[in-house]
């Protein structure tokens, strides 16, 4: 009896020691991580010229900037002052419509391309290692280069205007969507595909009838989210002349037409608000419908 207790005590001590050693190891690893992180932050602060004094000195100017954006609106003649502020409303709304169409078309084209490339780029569905390697590199390239850089190049090739912007955003979207879609493809259950093959289906049938139904809800969700991102991109892609409301905004900011800049910024912010809200509501409804 006594020996059994002693054995149990011994075992408990071994376990306790192991636990203490594990905790020490964890603590020292956490400390090392914290030190590395602090060093990285300090290095970044030095490299990035992070100067709190300059920042604090600049903050009043941020406030001043925002107060310049809104012209004085007198209580007696709100309508007159507002209509003077929004003198370019017709033109701006047209540019805004362009911007939204750019985002829509680019999301459509990019998602289509990304969807096609996501099959060779998924390890479980790819026809071979060469197709896998090529499609992965194409997606990485398209994703890592910012759309604004593509836009500058496309403005050179296709001239000023929305075409360059659409192509630039579409190419970046292709990369981003392709990667997300490929990850969704890799997480599917392979048994339905085997079922279709056993029933005599072609590789195309396997994709259409067994893979797509599994990934489609995810794909739709990613696409709504990407459309929201692309609306934001389309509002600024005009900075380099690639169409949409961005050029008008950039010119107003550059030439210090603060009233115009403020009016446009307000329109843009409201539109982004509305699109985000509508997209979220729609996504929720579609996802709920798909689940039911």
């Amino acid at each position: 009896m006594g020996t059994a207790l002693a054995v149990r005590d011994g075992r408990a001590r071994v376990l306790a020691d192991a636990l203490a050693a594990y905790r020490r190891r964890r603590r020292s690893r956490a400390a090392l991580g914290a030190i590395l992180f602090a060093a990285a932050v300090l290095l970044a602060a030095d490299l990035g010229g992070f100067d709190p004094v300059r920042l604090v000195a600049g903050l009043p100017r941020v406030r001043e900037f925002f107060s310049l954006l809104v012209p004085p609106i007198r209580s007696g003649q709100v309508i007159e002052d507002l209509s003077e502020w929004y003198w370019g409303l017709g033109k701006w709304l047209r540019l805004l419509a362009d911007t939204l169409l750019m985002a829509l078309l680019a999301t459509g084209l990019g998602t289509l391309g990304g969807a096609l490339l996501s099959f060779p780029a998924a390890a479980n569905l790819t026809p071979g290692p060469v197709a896998y390697w090529i499609s992965r590199r194409v997606l990485e390239f398209a994703r890592a280069v910012p759309d604004l850089v593509f836009a500058i190049i496309f403005v050179f090739a296709f001239g000023l205007g929305p075409l360059a912007g659409v192509l630039a955003i579409a190419l970046h979207t292709l990369g981003a969507q392709g990667k997300l879609f490929a990850e969704a493809n890799e997480n599917i259950d392979m048994k339905p595909l085997e079922g279709v093959r056993a029933a005599g289906g072609s590789p195309r049938d396997e994709i259409v009838f067994a893979a797509l139904p599994q990934v489609l809800p995810n794909w739709i969700s990613f696409t709504f989210w990407r459309f929201e991102v692309n609306v934001r991109s389309a509002t600024i892609i005009g900075f380099v002349g690639a169409g949409g409301i961005g050029l008008e905004l950039y010119e107003a900011l550059r030439l210090s037409y603060y009233d115009d800049a403020g009016a446009i910024l307000l329109i843009v912010a409201c539109t982004v608000f509305a699109i985000d809200w509508a997209s979220e509501a729609l996504r929720g409804r579609i996802m709920h419908g798909a689940g039911a």
Binding site: D51, G58, R61, V62, I236, D276
Partner: peptide, 26 residues
């Protein structure tokens, strides 16, 4: 929502005006 409704690039223009050219604005 208001903070994230404007693109990085627009905020960058605002901060370039406030704190000058350079990475601090970014």
């Amino acid at each position: 929502d208001a903070l994230r409704s404007l693109d990085h690039l627009i905020w960058a223009i605002v901060f370039v005006r406030a704190v000058g050219l350079g990475p601090l604005a970014g």
